[in-house]
C-alpha cells in the first residue's frame, strides 16, 4: 500500500493534490482544518476506502501529534508527505512606513504556520516516513520566497515566512538526505481561492487553476533524479527553476 499525507487539504491546491494521489492509487491522509469546508467529505464518498480525512492544524504541535497517532492506527508507514497548509494573512500591516504599524503577532503567526508547521510535521511524522519506501517530502513554497527576484514593496509577512520555510527545508535535507529522503520545493503559481461551495473566487491575476497546478506538480513530485540527494531547487508549475 502506497501512502501519502497532505496538509491543508480542505480546498484549492491541497484538495486537488489529494485527488491526484488518489488517482495514482495511494491511500491518502488529508489534513483538514477549516470547519466550514466539506469538500473532503464529498470526495470521501468517491473514495471511501483510500481517503482518510484527519484533523490537522499545523500551527499546533498537539494537533500534529494527534494526527500522527490517527495515521499510525491505520498504516505503519508513509511514503509521501506534502505540505500545502498556509496562512496568507489579513490586512496590510507588515510594511515599513505603511498605513498601519507592523503587527508583530501576525509575523509570528505566519512563520508558525507556513514554516514551523511543515518543519514540525516532518519531525513528528519521521518514524512513519522512515518506514516508507519513497521517502519523498514535497513542500509547497511560493515565488515570493525568492529573495533574488523579489520586486514587491508591500506586505512582507507571507513572503518572509516562505523564505524561512525554504531554509528550513534545506536544513532538513542536510540531515535526512543520507537516509534516502528526497525533497521537492514547489511554486504552484497564483490560484483563485476556493469557496466552501467548491466555486472559485474571481481574480484577474490568477495564473493557473488549482486542479491544473496539482496536475503540473505530480510529475515533479514523483520523479526520480540522480542528483536528488544533493540538490534542492524551487520549481514552478511550468517546470521552471527559481533562484532562492
Amino acid at each position: 500500500m502506497k501512502t501519502a499525507l497532505i496538509t491543508g487539504a480542505d480546498r484549492g491546491l491541497g484538495l486537488a493534490l489529494v485527488r491526484e494521489y488518489l488517482n495514482l492509487g495511494y491511500t491518502v491522509f488529508a489534513g483538514r482544518f477549516l470547519a466550514d469546508f466539506h469538500l473532503l467529505d464529498d470526495l470521501k464518498k468517491e473514495w471511501p476506502d483510500t481517503l482518510h480525512p484527519v484533523q490537522l492544524d499545523v500551527e499546533s504541535r498537539a494537533s500534529i501529534l494527534a494526527a500522527a497517532q490517527e495515521v499510525a492506527a491505520i498504516t505503519d508507514h508513509l511514503d509521501v508527505f506534502v505540505s500545502d497548509a498556509a496562512y496568507m494573512g489579513g490586512p496590510e500591516n507588515s510594511r515599513v512606513k505603511g498605513e498601519m504599524p507592523i503587527d508583530e503577532s501576525l509575523l509570528e503567526k505566519a512563520v508558525a504556520v507556513n514554516a514551523l508547521g511543515a518543519l514540525q510535521c516532518v519531525e513528528i511524522l519521521l518514524p512513519l516516513l522512515r518506514k516508507g519506501e519513497e521517502k519523498r517530502l514535497c513542500i509547497v513554497s511560493s515565488e515570493v520566497s525568492s529573495v533574488t527576484l523579489m520586486q514587491r514593496d508591500g506586505d512582507f509577512r507571507y513572503c518572509m515566512s516562505k523564505t524561512a520555510l525554504n531554509v528550513a527545508v534545506r536544513m532538513l535535507q542536510n540531515t535526512l538526505a543520507s537516509e534516502g529522503f528526497t525533497f521537492r520545493l514547489y511554486q504552484p503559481g497564483w490560484m483563485r481561492r476556493q469557496q466552501p461551495d467548491g466555486s472559485f473566487t474571481q481574480w484577474n491575476d490568477c495564473q493557473i487553476n488549482a486542479a491544473d497546478s496539482a496536475k503540473a506538480a505530480i510529475p515533479i513530485f514523483t520523479s526520480r533524479r540522480p542528483d536528488d540527494a544533493y540538490k534542492l531547487e524551487l520549481v514552478d508549475y511550468l517546470g521552471s527553476v527559481w533562484p532562492f
Binding site: A115, F156, T163, V167
Partner: peptide, 17 residues
C-alpha cells in the same frame, strides 16, 4: 537561520519600498 532568512526577504521588500 529561519529568522535571518525571513529578515532577508522582509528587508528586500523594505529596500524596494
Amino acid at each position: 537561520n529561519m529568522a535571518k532568512a525571513a529578515l532577508h526577504q522582509a528587508l528586500h521588500l523594505t529596500f524596494n519600498r
